[in-house]
Design a binder for these strands. Sequence first.
DNA 1: GGGTTTGGTTGCGATTGGCAACGATCGGGA
DNA 2: TCCCGATCGTTGCCAATCGCAACCAAACCC
Lengths: 146, 146
Amino acid sequence: MTRADTIRELEQEVGVLIRRVRRVIGVRARAVHESLQPASYLILAHINENGPVRASSIVELFEIDKGAISRQVHHLMELGLIDRAPDPDDGRATLLKVTDEGSRRMKDVADHRRKMLDEQLGDWTEQELSAFVSELARYNASLSDF
Amino acid sequence: MTRADTIRELEQEVGVLIRRVRRVIGVRARAVHESLQPASYLILAHINENGPVRASSIVELFEIDKGAISRQVHHLMELGLIDRAPDPDDGRATLLKVTDEGSRRMKDVADHRRKMLDEQLGDWTEQELSAFVSELARYNASLSDF
DNA sequence: GGGTTTGGTTGCGATTGGCAACGATCGGGA
DNA sequence: TCCCGATCGTTGCCAATCGCAACCAAACCC
């Protein structure tokens, strides 16, 4: 197997990954809230784990248009899953955090998801898993300059 | 670092991967043809590498709606990158293959891409690379039952 | 103080894909 | 052979997503 073949396989698997993850995220989003859009789920998860954050920090992290974030933030607020408060340090910015309701819903789903993942990834050792994450990060880094 | 933490990181990196790959595919598609849509690029690459194929086989492989494939096939034909011929073995089906023009354009881009990838992935050994691909496939398999 | 930068909103349009209805063809069993 | 269900593909419809650009307000900096 040549290097070129390996790279072809790599790209093939990345393609499969993307489509499957998209589907999984969709299922998960609906589990959190009937009307939660898949893309917003990822935003919500980020806010949930990283305390109050600015919208602009999400823009950087997700490498996505700020208009898209703005819309998804509105979507999440309509569903009552996040709250917004003016940033005391910067009058232009607002800080986003999950509501109690949002936090509770995320936790319920996270518990269920952890059970699923433990089943699905049960045969991975902790070493294998974290090695895989490192390689994934390494691959991501190699893509950043394209 | 607990297993839960590792899984969180895993999901984080997968998110980054998805967004970066989306961008890379977009660039590549435009390189093949000014008007080639990103999603169609993946279809084209598959047809290019797997000889004449049916649309339905792409549906299975890509786990995507057949209507979407039908539209992308039309798009690729309008651009003159693929051809369609009735399947002699099945009157309902058609076989898709790249045109000479499509093949030439893909080859030009592939050459350039290989150079880029060799630069970006230059510090991966062949073993590391194929190990990564295996783990990616393993992870993909674990997602399939969700 | 005034120009520039940054944070966020909104309108617009392109891309993408899911769902469903449809016509044509195939294949297997009565 | 004929018919019923399955398969292949097309199309209309629509929702989700995101990039781009124009815009406002606040902050920053010289």
